[in-house]
Simulated scan of single mutants.
Amino acid sequence: MLKEAIYAKEQEMLQLLERMVNQDSGSKYKKGVDAIGHMLRQKYEKLGFIVDVVNEVEVGNHLIIRHKETVRPRIVIVGHMDTVFPVGTAQDRPFTIKGSRAYGPGVIDMKASQVALFTALSTLVELGDKESYTNVHIILNSDEEIGSHRSKIVIENVALGKDYALILEPARDNGALVSARRGGGTYILRVYGKAAHSGIAPQDGISAIEEISYKIIELQKLNSQQEGMNVNVGLIRGGEAANVVSPYAEASIDVRITRPEQGAEIDKAIRKICSKPHIKGTNIELVGGINRYPVVKNEKTLDLLTHIQEVGAEIGVPIQDVATGGGSDASFTSSVHVATIDGLGPVGGGAHSVDEYLELPTFTERTYLLAKVIQRLSQVRLHPDLEYTI
């Protein structure tokens, strides 16, 4: 009955997806993200859900959603409403269907997931499965694509004390879920020197570029492939002209870690390198830090994965899992000791590119999987003796 009810909504799902994709909602386009939020808020409220709005000034508002009859939900579900695309992209590349794929900005990352979640819950409500639809606490945030700096605390607070976390990033292109992610962070290193004409009075100048060059070499030495720690100075800029001693230079630093304890270790090392100048007269400023800790594949995660795989086997959808180096909001639920599985959205590819697509056959299939997983998790509990270590 559940499968038939969901598959019967395929056209309705596509209509909502088209409407969402054709609304620009880049992370820094607050008006657009809030339009998506308003659209979803209206739909959830019609189902009997309470939608609390966390107001923001610079980014879109976040939504915290639970059914009005919910008492103690044990599942937290996290999805984001923002995309990476600038205003005007939806007009230039509107929602289209070609063969078995749908295209458009944000179609797989993650507007299809938003439609899948709403459809799964609306179907559970229509079927009267109160045990399931009252067992979820949903967070729809608006700044995931730029690091979730504003929504991180919201996610952690809602996730705290939950048994399970389902993160709605798209499944991998082979359909696999994500059971482990690397953590990481970003830093901005700024160096201030003194400008001078390099031909007339070079002795009066203090080169910020020279100073930052020393720092970059030391930072790159922190890389340890064997330990799974990576430091990459990916962007540098500075100077005013070829014949001017540079008064300013800046470097953007990306950090990736595999184990949680590496966060403090690498942060300390970076700050030590940037604590004092190599060239007298330069001033150094370092901002940023570790923002996402690793999603650890431990016993509780494995137990949750087993439930999902058993559901997949029941409905004819084999479920594999992978680890990935990319970050997501899964880090925040994992960091508060909640068993977390990511990649529970539909299958697609080309995220963040002009070729972003959704595999249409997986749209209803993964919606059905999500609904069945919610049902299963509403009937079981994690084993109390399982350890969760971060």
Rank of each mutant, 00 (worst) to 15 (best):
N298W: 13
A171G: 02
T362A: 04
V71N: 10
K3H: 13
Q15H: 11
Q262R: 13
K43M: 04
A5Q: 14
F95H: 07
G106M: 06
L17R: 03
Q11R: 14
V21K: 01
E211V: 00
D24R: 09
N141A: 00
P361F: 04
V53Y: 10
L358T: 06
H383S: 14
I108M: 13
N283R: 15
G128S: 08
F95S: 09
E4W: 12
V59C: 13
A120K: 01
L344N: 08
I390Q: 15
L219M: 10
E45N: 07
Y7R: 13
S353G: 11
E58M: 14
D385R: 15
I284S: 04
V287W: 06
R256S: 02
Y368E: 12
D129H: 13
V231K: 08
G128E: 07
G106L: 09
Y192D: 12
F85H: 14
E387P: 00
G343Y: 01
E18M: 09
N223I: 05
A251W: 03
V317M: 15
G239Y: 09
Q203C: 03
S213D: 00
P294R: 03
I236P: 01
E10T: 12
A196D: 11
G263V: 11
F85K: 10
Q42D: 13
Q203I: 08
Y103M: 01
N243G: 12
G343F: 00
E45H: 07
